[in-house]
Amino acid sequence: MTSTLPPKSKPLPHGVYPPVISLYKSTPRQEIDLDASYKFFSHLIRGGVDGLVLAGTNAEAVLLSPEERKDLVKIAKKAASDLGRPELAVIAGISGQSTNESIRLAEDALSAGADFGLLLPPNYWAKAVTEYVILSFYRDVADATELPIVIYSFPAMCNGIDMNSDTLSELAHHPNIVGVKLTCGNAGKVTRLTQEYTHEQFSVYAGASDWLIPCLAGGGSGCVTGIANIFPKSVAKLYTLWNAGQIQEAKELQGLVAQAEKACKEGIAATKYAAFHFAGSAAGVNDPKAFWPRKPYTPCGNEKNAWVEKVMQHLVQIEQSLPDAV
């Protein structure tokens, strides 16, 4: 490591984080189902995840109201506390198109009990998003809140805005910016950033579990992955195997996880159907409509559902063979 940057006062813990899907009532307005959410959060925590990410892309964050976001944070904290895991990290999406909106979302998340905030770069007018705009945006939000900020790099959802490792390195020097989630899939950013910074200075996470081992091998700290909504024990086991030095076993499980994660690449509807089909019953949420996307978006058709089942089926036996963490 080459940086003399002091460690952050509250680093983001190592590990596996599901960007938790939002569950809705079977009503015309599809209100958030807080009871179902509590059950699903509890299921994931029992599965051994190291934290929960709320109001992210998989949660359909742009379709959630400010009050719904706060309610979900409160319910997640309650689920963790009730299971004896009050320290479990809850990361709230705070992405807004303006600095002011992002600060307001950060204040809301902090007041609801969130531990960290996950923040995309501004991207509506992509041509106006210069490096200066990105640096100013993140620094201004981080200055204005006590909520530690995790940068969210996802060019595919941000009009192609892609923050390079030099920009991320600049932001790492802010005392309230603690890490980055790389949904850009760029392993080079991992190795460059981890060469400069320790986990405590600035942590780096893969944005999917199909490259968890490459991220960890490059010095990264874990992953935020949609498939952990569906097979949390399997992804947690993959992380544990690598850290225990059981490299061959980890590589074998990594391949199986990567094959199954193809379905999550198909979008929110496919991910939510998989969560219902493979995890809904175990979580105690049996209404398939709870897992539908929020309107105007629609669930997958029968053909896509059958494909999702086929490409993920091989993880069922592994998931069922693993014990609950709590």
Rank of each mutant, 00 (worst) to 15 (best):
P175G: 07
P86W: 14
L147D: 08
L315G: 08
I177K: 09
T167S: 10
L171S: 10
P299A: 15
K25R: 06
Q246P: 00
G160F: 13
Y197R: 03
P86T: 15
I227M: 07
K39L: 08
T99N: 03
L34P: 01
V133A: 13
M312L: 07
G222V: 14
W125R: 13
E319S: 08
F137E: 03
W292A: 02
G218M: 14
A80R: 01
A55F: 15
G51D: 01
S3V: 04
L253N: 02
S26N: 09
T194E: 01
E68S: 12
H14Q: 10
A106D: 05
A274C: 11
V150I: 06
E60V: 11
E319G: 10
V53N: 01
A244H: 11
T271S: 13
T183M: 03
N243S: 13
S3Q: 00
L238W: 13
K189L: 04
P86M: 14
L168N: 02
L256D: 12
G220K: 06
K251F: 08
I268D: 05
S165C: 15
K77M: 14
N164P: 12
V20D: 01
E60N: 06
R29M: 06
V285E: 02
M163C: 11
S136P: 00
T130A: 03
R294M: 03
L83F: 08
E60L: 14
G117A: 04
P7C: 14
E146Q: 09
P18L: 12
S234G: 08
G245L: 12
A306I: 02
G84T: 10
F278V: 10
Q201A: 14
